[in-house]
Amino acid sequence: MTLHIPHPRITTLKGGIVLILWGAGSSPENVQQFSQEVSTHQCSRVVVEHFERLKLSGHAKSTFSVVLSNLLEPHTTTHSFDLLSEVVRIMTPCGIVCGKELSDLRISSNLKLAGFCNITFDSSNSIFSAQTPNFEVGTSSKLSFAKPSVWTLSDALVDDEIELINEDDLLDESDLIKPAAESLRVCGTTGKRKACKDCSCGLAEELGTAQSGKSTTTSAATSSCGSCYLGDAFRCASCPYLGMPAFKPGEKIQLSERQLNPDL
């Protein structure tokens, strides 16, 4: 029996731990003969395993440096992604796997997905070979940009080289004067202190009084917004006057027992 291992990768058998995978149809005599022939290449150890018992055997990761797969007739095994994933797990970094597979397209895709590299396929005898990466499966490495850089000003830079502006210097006397409450009232339609054409909120009368120089003694109904007397359109969701008609500013309003106790 001749070993079907691509040259020069047959030299990797020397001193390595070799796993031989065989499948259904192969006779025990052929398996034993093949194992003995592999041992003549000065291997450190040779392990024989059936495909169906590979996962059940529970081999530790990074155990085998060489895996010979499906090289015994009648070559009935197909190298699925799940099978190759287990093979790459138990192989050492830079390990070699050689095997026989009838479909070059399928084996190439499965080998890549499982994590193998340097894949070759000899179409003349349907023998493939591949190599594991030079790191163990599951190895992680922190990327150099994993921690973001934080831009800061050092104390020396702030004190010696940068002249900071005093915020108070940006204000003048007019900015410090508290505006009158009347000047803050604007029209809900125009968004400005200018009454709209069909003003009904009293802003037009207020502006007219201010222009004539006369003061008004009309006081708004007591509320947080000062517009409850104008009707529901000007009332907030929690206003106790909801549902009531508009009333005149300063008019005494009598609330019902239900309105005074909304939880009843």
Rank of each mutant, 00 (worst) to 15 (best):
K178C: 08
S212I: 05
E163N: 09
R53A: 04
H50E: 05
G23A: 10
S124R: 09
S154K: 04
P240T: 08
G15I: 11
G25K: 01
A237V: 00
Q259A: 04
F81D: 12
I5G: 12
D198S: 03
L102W: 14
L207K: 08
D175W: 00
V150N: 05
C236G: 04
V38K: 07
F145L: 07
R185I: 11
S80T: 15
D198I: 08
V18C: 07
D82L: 13
D175R: 03
R9M: 02
Q42S: 05
G115T: 10
L13G: 03
D169W: 10
R258Q: 10
G213F: 11
G115E: 08
V186A: 00
Y241F: 14
L3M: 10
T76Y: 00
L164Q: 08
V97W: 03
Q36I: 10
L230G: 03
R235L: 03
D82K: 06
T78H: 15
D172W: 15
A146W: 03
L72K: 01
N30H: 09
S124A: 09
C201K: 05
F247T: 11
T78N: 08
Q33W: 01
I5C: 09
E37W: 14
H7Y: 10
W22T: 13
L84F: 10
K252F: 01
S85V: 01
A156V: 04
A220R: 09
A246P: 05
S212Q: 14
T217L: 14
K112S: 10
P6F: 11
L21A: 00
L84W: 06
N30T: 02
L230I: 13
D159K: 06
F51Y: 09
G191D: 00
T11L: 09
A237E: 06
K214D: 15
R185F: 07
D263V: 02
V31L: 07
K197F: 07
E173L: 12
P240L: 10
G16R: 13
I96L: 14
L3G: 00
S129C: 06
G213W: 07
V67P: 01
H41C: 12
Q36H: 06
V31R: 14
A204R: 15
C117R: 10
L170F: 05
L207F: 07
E257P: 06
I107Y: 03
F81Q: 13
T139H: 15
H75S: 02
E136S: 14
L203Q: 10
L113R: 15
K55G: 04
H79F: 13
C239E: 00
S69H: 03
L21C: 07
G115H: 14
G138S: 05
